[in-house]
Amino acid sequence: MSSSHPDLFGEEEASAPDATRRGRRSTAPVQAAEVAGPLKRLAVDLGPLVRFGTSSWYFPGWEGLVFRGRHSESTLSRHGLAAYAQHPLLRTVSLDRSFYRPLPAASYAALAAQVPDDFRFVVKATAAVTDASVRQPGSGAPGQPNPLFLDPATTLETVLRPAVDGLGHKLGVLLFQLSPLPTGWLLSPPERLPQALDRLFTALARSDRGPGLLAIELRDPELLTPELAALLKSHGVRYCVGLHDRMPPLDAQLPMLRATWPGPLVCRWSLQRGLRYQQAKARFEPFGALAAPDPATREALARLIAATVRAGQPVFATINNKAEGSAPLSVLALAEAVAALAQL
């Protein structure tokens, strides 16, 4: 995802939660779309363990799906979250902006003030600690080695503490999405990355990390090893299923889940296989339709979610527009598939 999206915070005050819930007409700049009764019942049928969401929320093409009326990206970035959080199926959101730049606690608190008490955030740790390379401005090509990669002190100060202080109990998952590793790391002794992760997670465990889960998402299939799974399990860190062109299909990632079971399911359906982000963006914008349905991935993910819920474990599943063309419609289709399996 490009980092050129509009700023989520500015001089304007954050929108308050929708006043219609308190019986008054809302004066918020962005209103929630009307939701049909069957969709509300679907949300109830899924139960409290299932949290679906999208990657960010500022897309004008979601008019009629999430938002009432047409709004600019800037307006939705500043004021759309409260309306987004009223959608009965959208009980979490992947906060991707934090990947590009660390956010202060006050920014997290402003977001938390816009959503209901039972809403949860999936927060992506900044690339300053999850990318082994310092990226070149403009091209994003890997440059010099990053001295702060997986650095415990920097992670505590710039990632964990601001998120915990700002979001409180609304922090659902703190996600470490490791960018593709440079060759120097992949060809290093196999214990190099596990040792770095062990130092990081040990430091986080000793701090007040709040109620949220810790999870890790990979972009290198070579890292899907029993040794890494054992390390994650020992620290209580969840393996995040990453449905992305750089990673193998879901079935090939199941051994990581089995090796770290039991525990909550964290999944990010980010990109349709065979595409790059810019290709998908150009093909799918303005993200108001399922332009390229992927029923095989959806059904496999639905089975995994249904099995996780039957075992009494929570689910955090977020979807990007680049997965099928419209994240809200992907959420709806996935929710229907999970509900159908629950009735079998």
Rank of each mutant, 00 (worst) to 15 (best):
S2L: 13
S2D: 05
S3D: 15
S4L: 11
H5V: 04
D7C: 10
D7I: 04
F9W: 15
E13S: 11
A14H: 08
S15F: 00
A16Y: 01
P17W: 10
D18L: 13
R21Q: 08
R21T: 10
R21E: 09
R22E: 01
G23K: 06
R24M: 00
P29L: 04
V30C: 11
V30R: 09
A33Y: 12
A33C: 10
L42R: 13
D45T: 13
D45G: 09
L46I: 01
P48A: 15
P48Y: 03
F52Q: 00
F52A: 07
G53L: 00
S56V: 05
Y58V: 00
G61D: 02
G64L: 01
V66L: 01
S72G: 04
G80Q: 13
A82H: 06
T92M: 03
R97T: 02
F99G: 03
A106K: 14
A110L: 07
L111F: 03
P116F: 01
F119C: 09
V122W: 02
V122T: 08
A125V: 11
T130C: 13
D131W: 08
Q136V: 12
G138Y: 10
G140E: 06
P142R: 15
N146M: 08
L148S: 06
F149C: 04
F149E: 11
F149W: 14
L150A: 09
A153Y: 07
T158I: 07
T158D: 06
A163N: 10
A163E: 08
A163P: 00
V164N: 02
D165Q: 15
D165A: 11
G168C: 09
K170D: 03
G172R: 12
S179M: 09
S179R: 09
P182H: 14
T183Y: 05
L187Y: 13
R192I: 02
A196P: 15
L200S: 03
A203D: 05
L204W: 01
L204T: 04
L204Y: 01
A205W: 05
R206A: 15
S207R: 14
L213I: 08
L213E: 04
I216N: 01
R219K: 11
E222H: 01
T225G: 06
T225C: 07
T225V: 05
E227W: 09
L231A: 06
K233M: 00
G236S: 02
R238H: 07
Y239K: 04
C240I: 04
G242M: 09
L243N: 07
H244Y: 15
H244S: 05
R246H: 14
R246E: 12
P248L: 13
A252Y: 14
Q253C: 11
R258F: 03
A259T: 08
T260L: 12
W261N: 08
V266K: 09
V266C: 03
W269T: 10
W269N: 05
R273F: 03
L275T: 12
Q278L: 10
K281P: 00
E285G: 01
F287L: 09
F287T: 07
G288F: 06
A291P: 00
P293S: 10
D294R: 12
D294T: 07
R298I: 03
R298K: 04
A300V: 01
A306H: 07
A307F: 00
G312Y: 11
T318Y: 08
N320L: 10
K322R: 14
K322D: 06
E324N: 12
G325L: 12
S326R: 09
A327W: 04
P328E: 10
L329A: 07
L332K: 13
V338G: 06
A339I: 00
A339D: 15
A342T: 07
L344C: 13
